[in-house]
């Protein structure tokens, strides 16, 4: 592990970049103390996130113990390939987020921002896959098909074949909204309650994380450059948040997709 040695520099127009001029809040003794405080604060916040999701995981455990077959059946409607792909997408985004911090620490602004963009794209991809490939077909029976292979066929289609309808596939809705006809266990609707709440809460966190990263990206734009070797607290915070979102998915994925 290397440590930071930074070369001060000026940005366009001869102004000093934001990370050079940054002044820590006056009630801290040093900038490092502030950085440390922010990090500890963030970790405390992450602890609360862990315990927020603990509710979901405890719900999962209790219901899986009470209704094992409902969970086995429910899970069997999930395609591990989409879950797996989303895992890979999130892991890559975590890596690019970590690399972005690394680049900021070395004052490679362009590379750092590029990594932020990749992270954002991965986050968007994750949400898109969730929605188009999982939520919408399962809830409504409308499958998303970018190849449009069903256009003109006998299946109902929408948007010129971008979506096609499969009779009897949809209706896997949570709780009392459940209307899927082929359930084989009376508690299968409880599985879907859990599935949508758990993944939905997680997806909401993905969106919040993306907003934080977008904010970092905006304040690191040329001419502002708020983050650099001397000061990258904001990136670090957004990164930590992003990783905890990844962390929760690492557990959700096998628990939801790999039961049999």
């Amino acid at each position: 592990m290397s440590t930071i040695d930074f070369k001060p520099g000026l940005i366009q127009g001869g102004r000093a970049p934001g990370y050079e001029t940054y002044k820590h809040a006056s009630h801290f003794r040093t900038k490092d103390e502030e950085f440390d405080a922010c990090k500890t604060g963030m970790w405390l916040f992450l602890a609360t996130e862990v315990l927020l999701f603990a509710g979901i995981f405890v719900w999962y455990s209790i219901y899986r113990m009470m209704y094992p077959d409902a969970f086995r059946n429910g899970s069997s409607y999930l395609d591990w390939r989409w879950g797996g792909l989303n895992t890979v997408v999130l892991l890559i985004s975590s890596y690019t987020m970590a690399m972005s911090i690394n680049h900021f620490q070395h004052n490679r602004q362009k590379e750092a921002r590029r990594n932020l963009v990749i992270t954002l794209v991965c986050g968007a991809l994750f949400v898109a896959i969730k929605l188009l490939m999982e939520y919408i077909p399962k809830m409504t029976g409308w499958h998303f098909d970018p190849t449009m292979s069903h256009a003109g066929g006998e299946a109902l289609t929408k948007f010129g074949g971008l979506f096609y309808f499969e009779q009897g596939y949809g209706g896997k809705l949570p709780g009392i909204l459940f209307s899927y006809p082929f359930a084989t266990d009376p508690h299968e609707n409880m599985w879907w309650s859990l599935y949508y709440t758990g993944t939905g809460l997680h997806a909401a966190h993905v969106l919040i994380g993306m907003a934080l990263i977008a904010r970092v990206w905006w304040f690191s734009r040329p001419g502002v450059e708020n983050y650099g070797p001397k000061h990258y607290t904001g990136v670090e915070m957004a990164g930590l948040y992003w990783h905890i979102v990844d962390l929760i998915w690492i557990f959700l994925f096998p628990l939801l997709y790999l039961i049999h």
Binding site: A47, T48, V50, L51, L52, A54, G55, L201
Partner: peptide, 12 residues
């Protein structure tokens, strides 16, 4: 910090 998130998820 450790207990309040649980009431958060419960009420949610």
């Amino acid at each position: 910090v450790l207990a309040t998130p649980v009431i958060g998820i419960t009420l949610l």
